[in-house]
Computed example of a mutant assay.
Amino acid sequence: MSLPAALCERTVETTTAAYDLAVAVDLELTGELSPDPVGRLRVLCGDPLAKVVTVDLVVPPIGLDSHMIFAFLPGDSAIPHFTLDSVAANGYFAMHLDLIPRTDLAVSLDYLDAAFLPLTPSLEAAWRIEGVSPAAVGPRQRAMMSPWMVVCRATESAFGELGGTVAEYLRHWLTLVDKGVPPVDIDLAARDRVNRANLFSPRVDPVWAQVTRLLGAEQAERVRGELLS
């Protein structure tokens, strides 16, 4: 198993064990130009989570080994969503790790301090790892994530060290799920719908054009639909 696949699988296993998740969807994804499987879509469900969506895309001919996890809380919960993208492509490794805010952090200081401030030492330590460098992500996408996002490229050894950062973020997120966060005075479900529509919009994230080229429009929309619903 590759480093990116193993990292995501450990993360899924930890979350599944914590909440006794059950598989609701397990679907092979095929290539647009070939009937051979190029990936897998899984959806796992169990209280108190709404769903965990995992997408694996492994295409050796184009050097792609990509594994994504998005763990969602219910729409009316203030607890951040958890996301991890773990990738090897054409000789480099990349990662996107974050907790997705459910409210405007600038006007929700108690929420910020509880949900995100404890991640600061882990964030700072991650950027000190030799071989970790910032990924090219524009301000438009960054505006939809948190300031504690780790989005980077890494050497193989640095990527291995980043596994510790993922474990620390996951432990903190599981604590938030279990203990809760300070309340916020907004329509959480309405904000979540809009936020997810933007996060997973092809207008915002160019990765959807690549996924569509690989899987075709129908399968790409099936994957995106699981992330939106």
Rank of each mutant, 00 (worst) to 15 (best):
A50V: 01
L199H: 11
L57H: 00
E221C: 01
P121R: 04
V107L: 06
C8Q: 15
L228P: 13
A6C: 07
D85I: 03
D20G: 14
S2G: 13
A94I: 02
R153H: 12
V194P: 00
S108M: 02
E226P: 09
D26V: 00
Y19P: 02
D85Y: 00
P182W: 04
S66H: 11
A167C: 07
S34K: 05
L33Y: 06
F93W: 09
A71M: 01
A158H: 05
L117D: 14
P4V: 08
Q141R: 14
R128F: 04
V177N: 03
A190S: 11
D36A: 15
G31C: 02
A189C: 10
G31P: 01
V211T: 10
R128A: 15
L176H: 03
W148H: 14
V43D: 08
P202R: 03
L199C: 01
M145E: 07
D205T: 11
F72S: 12
A88T: 09
A106N: 06
D185F: 12
N198V: 08
V43K: 06
R191M: 11
V23A: 09
K51V: 01
I100L: 13
L112K: 10
A126P: 06
L105E: 05
L227N: 10
L44M: 12
G131V: 02
S86R: 07
P80L: 03
G163H: 07
F82W: 06
A50H: 10
A5C: 11
C45Q: 15
G225E: 11
G163Q: 07
G138W: 04
F72E: 10
R10I: 07
V55H: 00
S201N: 12
L162V: 09
R222E: 14
V55K: 02
T175G: 15
Y111P: 07
E28V: 02
G46F: 05
P134G: 06
R191G: 07
L199A: 03
P80W: 09
I69A: 03
L109W: 10
F72R: 10
T15Q: 13
V59N: 04
